[in-house]
């Protein structure tokens, strides 16, 4: 059974049809890319998948469960985590605390336990710290654990956002332009990280990207979006050679 099934998804903002009749199937463990020219509706689809927008039509199924129209919080709890195109970190928290915030729903103790510093507080906090450090390691961020998130260099902020998303224990990880603003060397490093994350954490990855070297380098399958509609989908190599896709990107 497919991990994510999107059926005939559509959304209108007033008279604007931002996404129309979009369908997509992602199998477990796949590295899937969603590409398209600017304004094609890629981020809108991400926002519908994570419950920020409620779709006007169609349905979204995660692991056989219908998650259409649920709240962002509920969708995260059922197994989708994401990063943002414009980085959204908890800037006044430390790097470690950013990841620990992501662990909030997986390592629990009551507010009263925290206030009265019961033994469970110390035990759980220690487990959380260990888990957080473990999550920071593949991103080479464990050395910066005590820094404020806002003091990290740009590339590391992007990585921290991925680590925080992974902390919630997702089945599906959505990356919105993970390589935006990175130089070619940083991008190459990021590609390796994404592959390691997929293999080590056993997550399925869906990413939006404009950097074709990253897309062709790691994505196994692609969907191309143009003017809110699916232009074509399939294996990466086939899609990138499709004349329709080239036309959408480069014009005639």
């Amino acid at each position: 059974m497919a991990l994510l099934e999107v059926k005939k998804l559509g959304i209108s903002f007033g008279g604007l049809r931002a996404v129309d009749d979009f369908s997509m199937t992602i199998e477990k463990g796949e590295l899937y890319g969603l590409i398209g020219p600017n304004g094609a509706g890629k981020t809108t689809i991400f926002n519908m998948l994570t419950g920020v927008y409620k779709p006007t039509d169609g349905s979204i199924w995660l692991d056989g469960k219908n998650i259409t129209g649920k709240s962002t919080t509920e969708i995260n709890k059922s197994g989708i985590a994401r990063t943002f195109q414009n980085i959204r970190l908890f800037s006044k928290l430390s790097v470690l605390d950013n990841v620990k915030a992501g662990l909030t729903n997986r390592y629990t103790y009551s507010t009263a336990t925290g206030i009265f510093r019961l033994p469970k507080f110390f035990r759980t906090e220690r487990e959380m710290t260990e888990k957080a450090i473990e999550l920071l390691k593949p991103f080479e961020l464990d050395g910066d654990a005590d820094l404020l998130a806002s003091n990290l260099p740009y590339g590391k902020q992007r990585k921290l956002e991925i680590a925080r998303a992974l902390a919630t224990g997702p089945k599906l990880l959505l990356l919105d332009e993970p390589a935006a603003g990175m130089n070619p060397r940083e991008t190459a490093g990021l590609m390796n990280t994404i592959l390691t994350v997929r293999d080590d954490f056993g997550v399925t990855v869906l990413l939006i990207e404009h950097d074709m070297s990253l897309v062709s380098g790691i994505c196994e399958k692609l969907s191309v979006l143009n003017f809110g509609q699916l232009l074509c989908e399939g294996k990466t190599g086939d899609v990138l050679r499709n004349p329709e896709v080239i036309k959408a990107y480069l014009g005639e």
Binding site: T50, V52, S71, T72, T73, N76, K77, A81, R82, F84, R88, L89, F90, S91, K92, L93, D97, K100, A101, G102, T104, N105, G114, R164, A165, A167, T168
Partner: peptide, 19 residues
């Protein structure tokens, strides 16, 4: 407290990690 500060720093991101 950490969750509360997450909400303060970025509400949308806090929602996205299930808070």
């Amino acid at each position: 407290g950490r969750a509360v500060m997450s909400v303060r720093d970025n509400r949308i991101a806090a929602e996205s990690i299930g808070l």
